[in-house]
């Protein structure tokens, strides 16, 4: 699962819908894997304004990944530079959001404590019926 996806994923329990702690889910004992992907600059520009930047900063800290700027960059910065490709910032974001993936481990809800297992990159979000 791409780290991009983690920036949108919430706890699936209805009881957690209104809780501010149900997002972001917290990684536990995760194994990361880099899966190379073609750069997609227009996609990055599209998704950047929709990211929860503080959640991304928290996630990087929890995973021990190199620090991000505290403030979200502007979309214009992604197309800056002589070649219009945004240079290192665009490369770093591509690497972090679209190529860094959670391969194994768990994602934990900060509100109810429910643990979602991730196996071979696939997260199990099936809830037993009493938790729906």
């Amino acid at each position: 699962m791409k780290l991009l996806t983690l920036n949108f994923l919430t706890c699936a329990r209805r009881a957690c819908k209104s809780s501010a702690d149900a997002f972001p889910l917290h990684p536990r004992d995760v194994e990361l894997e880099i899966v190379e992907a073609e750069p997609n600059p227009s996609f990055l520009s599209n998704i950047l304004p929709r990211l929860e930047w503080p959640a991304l900063v928290t996630l990087c800290a929890e995973l021990g990944l190199p620090g991000l700027p505290g403030e979200a960059p502007e979309v214009a910065e992604l197309t800056a530079g002589e070649d219009g490709k945004g240079g290192k910032l665009a490369e770093d974001l591509h690497r972090l959001l679209l190529e860094t993936t959670v391969k194994e481990g768990a994602l934990v809800c900060g509100s109810c404590g429910h643990e979602y297992r991730v196996k071979e990159g696939i997260a199990n979000f099936l809830l037993p019926s009493h938790l729906v």
């Binding site: 791409k2 919430t10 706890c11 199990n124």
Partner: peptide, 30 residues
């Protein structure tokens, strides 16, 4: 999903029942 994994698809995969809801924050998808 196991077959999807073998096919090395590019999307992220979730084992989930859409009848239980859609666990993403508001405004996620285009």
């Amino acid at each position: 999903l196991g077959v999807a994994l073998e096919r090395e698809v590019e999307g992220d995969l979730f084992l989930a029942d859409a009848g239980q809801g859609v666990p993403f924050r508001p405004g996620t998808f285009d």
